[in-house]
Design a protein around this nucleic acid. Structure first.
Lengths: 227, 227
DNA sequence: CGAGCCGTTGATATCACTCAAACTACGTGG
DNA sequence: CCACGTAGTTTGAGTGATATCAACGGCTCG
C-alpha cells in the first residue's frame, strides 16, 4: 500500500487535488513500529504529527507511581499529535504502539503553510479537532457523572454501532486497555462485565461480545454519548 | 466599550487587518444576559458561536438526576461554542451565565468563508481548539489519576500563576462552582480546603486564598498541569 | 427583615481501588 | 508435539476516599 493511496482516502485530506496529495505524500515519512514501542513522550518538542496506516496507538498520561490515564486508542486512518503542531510545540501526552504498526509522519515544516493556503485542509483540521473535543467532553462527563457499569454500557452500545449495529462483535482492544479507557481498574471492569452477563444483558466469550438486551444496555448508559 | 475594540484585542482575531475587523464587527450581535440565563442547550442546532465581552459562562453537561459535569467556566475575552460551527452543527453541552454578562454572538454565516479565506484566522482557531484539547486532556488526567486534594492543589497553584504568582489572591468563582470544575462535591471540596489549611499549606478567608507553603502544594499536585 | 444562596460540619453507606493469587490462552523453542 | 514463559484475565478480601443525606450558620439582596 502506497502512502498516497492511504492518505487519499482519509477524511483529513478530503477535497485535496491529486497534485496536492502528491506533494503531501512526498514529504511524508513512512515508518514501521514494533508493538510496545514509544512514539513520543509528553512535553517533548514536536516536529510534526502522525497518521496511522496500520496498527493501533495508545495516547496516555502517566502518574509518578506508574498508573495511567488513557486519552485515546487510535486505529488505522486516524491522526494524532496534531495539537502540538498548532499550539505549544510540544506533545501533550505520551504515545506508544499497542500493536505492531505502520505510521506516517508528517513533518511540521510545510504543513502549516499548506494549511493556511488550502481552505479545505484547514476546515478539515478544524473539524477533526472539534470532533476530538466532543469526545473529550463526553469522556469528562462520563468520568464525573457515571459509574463503571454505565460507562461500560455506553462503550458497548457505541462499539456495536461502529460495527454496523451487529449484536455480536469482537472488541478490538484488550480488556486491560478498555479498563484504562473507561478510567477504571482491570478488576473493576472484569466484575462489571461479569455482572452484566449474570443479568442477561450480554454474553461474553473472550473478546467476543453478544448484546442480548440492547434496551437494558441503553437504559443503563442513559444519555452517555460515544466515548 | 465598542464591539470592534473588544475583538481587536482578542488572541483569536490576532493578525486581522483593520478592515477585516470592521467587517467582522458589523456582523456581530451584542447581547446582555442576566445571571443564570441559559445561552444554549446541548444538542440544539448552532447558528454561530459566542465571545464573552463581560461576565462569566459555565459550560456543562447534566445527568437526568440533575447532577452536573462542568467542562469550563469561561471569562471575559474567551470564545465558546466554536466546536458546533466546525463539526456536527449542534452544541456539545449546555451554556449558562453565572454572572450578569455581555456576550458577542458571531453568526456562522460568513464565518466559515472568512476562516477559509484568511490564513491568520484559521491558524488562530486551530491554536484555540488545540489549547482547549490540552486543557481537557489535563482534566481527564486529573479525574482519572488524582484525588480531590491533589486536583485542588493543582488548581490553586495555577490560579496563583494566573495572578502573576501572587501568594495571596481571590478566587474568581464561587466554591460550589470550583467543586464542580474539580469533579467533586461541594462538601468534599470544603473538607479538602479545611485540611490543607490545618496542615499549614494555605490560609482561607472566604474567597481569598493565601499560599503559605508553595512547595508543599506543588508536591501534592505533582505533575498535574493547569485544569 | 425575610428568602434564598452559599458554605460548613457531621454521620453513614458504598463504590472502586489495591493487594494477592490462581487460571487461561497463546506463541515460542526445544 | 509438548513444555514453558508471558501476557491477559478473573476472583477474593480488605480498605479507603468520596458521594450522599441532613442540619445548621452566615451572607447578600431585594
Amino acid at each position: 500500500m502506497f502512502v498516497q493511496n492511504i492518505i487519499a482516502n482519509l477524511p483529513l485530506f478530503n477535497g485535496l487535488t491529486q497534485s496536492q496529495l502528491e506533494a503531501l505524500a512526498s514529504i511524508i515519512v513512512d515508518k514501521p513500529y514494533e508493538k510496545g514501542e514509544m512514539i513520543f513522550f509528553e512535553g517533548t518538542a514536536a516536529k510534526g504529527f502522525y497518521v496511522i496506516a496500520q496498527g493501533r496507538v495508545k495516547i496516555y498520561k502517566s502518574a509518578p507511581d506508574g498508573r495511567e490515564a488513557i486519552l485515546h486508542v487510535f486505529g488505522p486512518g486516524e491522526p494524532f499529535g496534531e495539537v502540538a503542531v498548532f499550539q505549544g510545540g510540544t506533545y501533550p501526552a505520551h504515545a506508544v504502539t499497542v500493536e505492531k504498526s505502520r505510521l506516517l509522519f508528517l513533518p511540521r515544516e510545510g504543513l502549516v503553510s499548506r494549511i493556511s493556503s488550502d481552505p479545505a485542509l484547514s476546515l478539515n483540521m478544524l473539524a477533526a479537532l472539534s470532533s476530538r473535543l466532543r469526545q473529550f467532553a463526553n469522556k469528562i462527563e462520563a468520568l464525573t457523572l457515571k459509574e463503571t457499569p454505565q460507562r461500560l454500557a455506553a462503550y458497548l452500545v457505541t462499539a456495536s454501532e461502529l460495527k454496523d449495529g451487529a449484536d455480536t462483535f469482537t472488541l478490538d482492544i484488550a480488556k486491560g486497555l478498555l479498563a484504562g479507557m473507561l478510567g477504571t481498574a482491570r478488576e473493576t471492569l472484569s466484575r462489571a462485565l461479569t455482572k452484566m452477563a449474570e443479568e442477561g444483558m450480554v454474553r461474553v466469550e473472550g473478546r467476543q461480545i453478544t448484546i442480548l438486551d440492547r434496551d437494558a444496555l441503553e437504559a443503563l448508559a442513559s444519555g452517555l454519548e460515544s466515548l
